[in-house]
């Protein structure tokens, strides 16, 4: 049996807005094993981002247990969760969130800067490897404002990879990109999946679910659907059928 990376047990998350309580998550339970590529879908306001924040140890659930790589997260304090994020989680955001006026390599090195056990030489070496893995081996010294959206998202993915995380969390990672570039990024995620990475990918686009190994659908803070995908489509093939771009 494969190793369990994530286990959620009856996770609830309530927000207090004035006198009202918003129930963003109403008892979510599932587990994800190593090497899965899970897409999370659902209508706007269904709790996808809240769930992802919980998985990313940015938010603590109101009740329920969360185990990341066998570690109970709920009882951890702020600093412990920061360290956990630094070692076990890679985030990819919709709007890339690269540091402005900063080179690709420096952006990718950033998570390792907050890891005192990582030497400067090792940091550089790992960042170069991560950038090569996303196909930007020749763009190390490009600054964030000198790159296209697709390139910036690749840098962000490299940054999420660099600490060799237990799970990569992506919130609408293709939301800001055109269809073709979205597929290029999707190809990258599939490559990572093929390399054995565990990926959780939040998206609005139902098409993307066809390229993942499992799809979870949320509605009003409940899981309404959780199905494995036996026929994973190849994003690379889909990309090959796209009309050629005029350069």
């Amino acid at each position: 049996m494969k190793k369990e990376v994530i286990r959620l047990e009856n996770i609830r998350r309530d927000f207090q807005v004035g006198d009202e309580t918003v129930h963003a998550l109403r008892g979510i339970s599932f587990s994800i094993t190593e090497g899965e590529f899970v897409t999370i879908m659902g209508t706007s306001g269904s709790g996808k981002s809240t769930l992802l924040n919980t998985l990313g140890c940015l938010d603590t659930p109101t009740s329920g247990e969360y185990y990341l790589d066998g570690v109970a997260v709920r009882t951890m304090d702020k600093n412990q969760r920061a360290t956990l994020r630094n070692r076990k989680i890679g985030f990819v955001f919709q709007n890339y969130n690269l540091l402005p006026k900063t080179t690709a390599i420096e952006n990718v090195e950033l998570p390792l800067m907050y890891n005192p056990s990582c030497s400067a030489a090792l940091r550089y070496q790992k960042a170069v490897e991560a950038l090569k893995a996303v196909g930007l081996g020749d763009r190390l010294l490009h600054k964030s404002n000198q790159m296209s959206g697709g390139q910036m998202q690749r840098v962000a993915i490299a940054r999420a990879l660099v600490n060799d995380p237990a799970v990569i969390l992506a919130d609408e990672a293709t939301g800001n990109l055109d269809t073709r570039t979205s597929f290029e990024v999707l190809v990258l995620f599939q490559q990572l999946h093929a390399a054995g990475r565990t990926i959780i990918f939040v998206t609005h686009n139902p098409e993307i679910a066809q390229y993942s190994s499992r799809n979870i659908t949320l509605r009003d803070g409940h899981i309404t659907d959780d199905t494995p995908n036996p026929h994973i489509l190849s994003a690379a093939e889909a990309l090959a059928h796209f009309p050629k771009q005029e350069d």
Binding site: G56, L58, N79, A82, T83, R87, F91, P111, R159
Partner: peptide, 16 residues
Amino acid sequence: TREIGLRMSIGAKGRD
């Protein structure tokens, strides 16, 4: 603010 949020999400502690 966004930069600070990013740094925190990739593991910077409040004291960092």
